[in-house]
Write a protein that binds this DNA or RNA. Structure first.
Lengths: 208, 208
DNA sequence: ACGAAACATGAATACTGATTCATGTTTCAT
DNA sequence: ATGAAACATGAATCAGTATTCATGTTTCGT
């Protein structure tokens, strides 16, 4: 059966419509990119379909050729952010044996990513209210990976013992808060300084 | 001049209207409480004035006697959350000399608070999109207090040296993420367990 | 007891913006 | 070349809902 029959392949969503030609592909991408910029800047509710399509340079109706609803583009953006972040961090920590070193490199890569994609960051946050499922999946997927990594490191004796799940959430919280300080609160600090301080905290704690 | 002239007292907002009788006071409180529940449950945009007033048991127009706009109730809820959280934590850490002990007690108090007020927690998160100023003020006020505390502890030699601002954001991030795990992701863990694990991380870090 | 201020009502207003649709235009396999 | 499928258009539809307002009712100081 190979690729299976008909238009089927989807276990997850029912996409509005996948484009079938190069032109369609390009238009869909244009709309997605416009949605990222407009929703990131104005927020989900103030970003109208009209804004998005005019930013994309297409007519309003064109939107509905590729997306069933406004929520659907949004969900797709959240998924994209998830894939990109995981990919970025995986790449940055590739081949690093020591977990603590990986922790540092991963944090640095994450902060660089959010600085480069502030719109995507806000979109993920807003997903808690617009598409709770997508938000859930984003963080749970992330947390699962984190837990595995910590478990392995704990077994290898690279880090001390402790409940990995709580630790994973705490460490994700650090990364998220520092990213937010950077882009929402427009901190002037360099990423290098931030990472050094945070790494020291993560590795050694506050004890004198 | 004492209380100053006329209806003035406000340096900050221009409140829709302060009630002048006990009846008014009660009605305003009813609306505020209803807004907390309804907005917390449905989110800002899906929570209509009609929902809020019917939950409060008053007519729709009554809302506008006490609040100028829908945004105004929302902002007030964010302020309330800020005051309550700071008060709760201040109380819980009252008289604790050692900063690390205070850190632990504060985290525990915070988690208990968010478990008791999940609606308020969501409202603060949503403020990033509905009332960015309120969101900003909430976190900046918090961070400032945190920085002062850490600086004093550092000077007293209770904790190691390190950039207090980055540390403050990192620690706030831990608390926030663990609170979120608790109420958004409905973790089954007990607050005690969570606090123990997190405290160990904060005090000693991950190093074996 | 009484009148003015405060409080309460809920129907009417006014506007926004997501989604649909009837009608073209472009692409591409044959 | 040609017709069917894919793509594009933008005006019209349609529903929801924040806010206003004209009209009562209650409270409270005197």
């Amino acid at each position: 059966m190979g690729k299976s029959a008909g238009q089927a392949e989807a276990h997850r969503q029912a996409p509005g419509n996948q484009p079938k030609t190069a032109r369609g592909e390009a238009t869909r991408k244009a709309i997605l990119g416009a949605a990222e910029r407009v929703i990131g800047a104005k927020g989900y509710n103030d970003a109208s379909i009209g804004h998005i399509t005019s930013e994309a340079g297409v007519a309003q109706g064109t939107f509905y050729i590729y997306f069933k609803t406004k929520e659907e583009v949004f969900s797709e953006l959240v998924l994209e952010m998830g894939r990109l972040v995981r990919h970025t961090i995986a790449e940055a920590t590739q081949g690093i044996e020591n977990r603590l070193d990986a922790e540092k490199a991963g944090l640095q890569a994450f902060l660089e990513f959010v600085r480069a994609h502030p719109d995507l960051y806000r979109i993920v946050q807003e997903a808690l209210f617009v598409d709770p499922n997508a938000y859930h999946e984003y963080y749970v997927t992330f947390a699962d990976g984190y837990c595995s990594g910590l478990s392995a490191a704990e077994k290898a004796g690279q880090i001390s013992k402790g409940d990995v799940e709580t630790r994973a959430w705490a460490l994700m919280g650090i990364a998220r808060a520092l990213g937010e300080q950077l882009i929402v609160f427009k901190s002037e600090k360099s990423i290098g300084e931030i990472v050094d301080t945070a790494y020291d905290l993560i590795a050694n704690g506050l004890k004198p």
